[in-house]
Computed example of a mutant assay.
Amino acid sequence: MKQKMAVPSNATLKKNAADYSLIVVGSFLQALSYVLFLAPYKIVPGGVYGVSIVIHYVTKGLFPFLPEGLPMGATALCFNIPLMFLAMKKIGLSSGPKTIVTFLLISIFTDTLSYFLTDPLVENDAFIAAFYGGAILGVGVTCIFRAQSTSAGTDVLARVIANDSNLKVSNMIIVLDSAVVLLGLIVFRDWAVPLYSWFTIFVYGKIVEMFQVENPNRAVFIVSKKTQDMKNLIVNQLGMRGTFIHGKGMYEGLETEIIFTIAERKDLPKLKDGVKEIDPHAFVSTMHASKDSPRPGI
């Protein structure tokens, strides 16, 4: 007997359409920031594209077939693809398809815009370029986060290192981005580079924080009889950690296991959807969590 294929509901199709529309807009805005504001002034905003901007300038005139240097988008792609495989192997990146679409689009948009837009939008003012570049980059990243995606890059590497070493992801991102900025200082030998680069990172971070109206971390309590399936979802599929808390029901007095975990706001919808798919009768409760809360399951 043939099994019927599951047909996505209208709500699912609408949500996917909205998510991928946000990914297209966010990817375009990020590419616009790199091409029109940051790269022309050798501003290195950390991450994979910070490294790509440095390589783009270092390779100018090095290859006869690429006199303007290696294209930023293609160079970033060479970093993002292995980072993506590393993330899928180490932390089971659940947003894989969306992430692949995101970093492919950013690369395509970046190199396409670089071909057609050869002059910076802001002339002879690196400070204004750093401000607008950081602001547009922040709006683009916010769109990507709203679509429950990521542009891979050094944030993925930061998560892998943090998972292996029990360090905070936010601290690792700061370390990696700062290392990229210092690379720009060493290569370009210009003390203005780290100044404008860190200012861009600051503006970008504030824009993301402004549009992220909720606390980025949520404490989540899950009550379900399918505890091992929930553990597989949290640890293997979402790359998070959690703790089993022994509990006892007040009404019937039955012993139960309560799962406690800390989830980033962007990961919360995926966690809730996964829980309901495993156990439609599961009880899920969330509350605000401090950014400095220790991660459960250490």
Rank of each mutant, 00 (worst) to 15 (best):
M1S: 13
K4H: 01
V7R: 02
S9N: 03
N10V: 02
S21Y: 03
A31H: 00
L36M: 06
A39Y: 07
Y41N: 09
K42S: 08
V44G: 00
P45L: 09
G46K: 04
V48Y: 14
G69K: 08
G73L: 13
A74M: 11
F79S: 00
M84F: 09
K89H: 12
K89E: 01
L93W: 10
I100W: 06
V101H: 14
L105M: 13
I106W: 04
S107M: 08
S107Q: 12
S114V: 08
S114L: 13
L117G: 09
A126N: 06
I128K: 15
G140N: 06
V141T: 09
R146P: 01
S151Y: 07
A162K: 03
N163E: 05
S170H: 06
A179P: 07
V187L: 12
F188N: 06
D190N: 05
W191D: 07
L195M: 11
L195S: 14
Y196F: 09
S197R: 02
T200Q: 00
M210T: 14
M210V: 14
N215G: 13
R218I: 05
A219W: 03
V220F: 07
I222C: 00
V223N: 12
M230Y: 02
N232T: 14
N236Y: 10
G239Y: 07
H246E: 11
G247N: 05
K248M: 10
L254R: 12
L271I: 02
K276P: 02
E277R: 11
P280L: 14
P280C: 07
H288W: 10
A289E: 08
S293I: 07
R295L: 09
I298R: 14
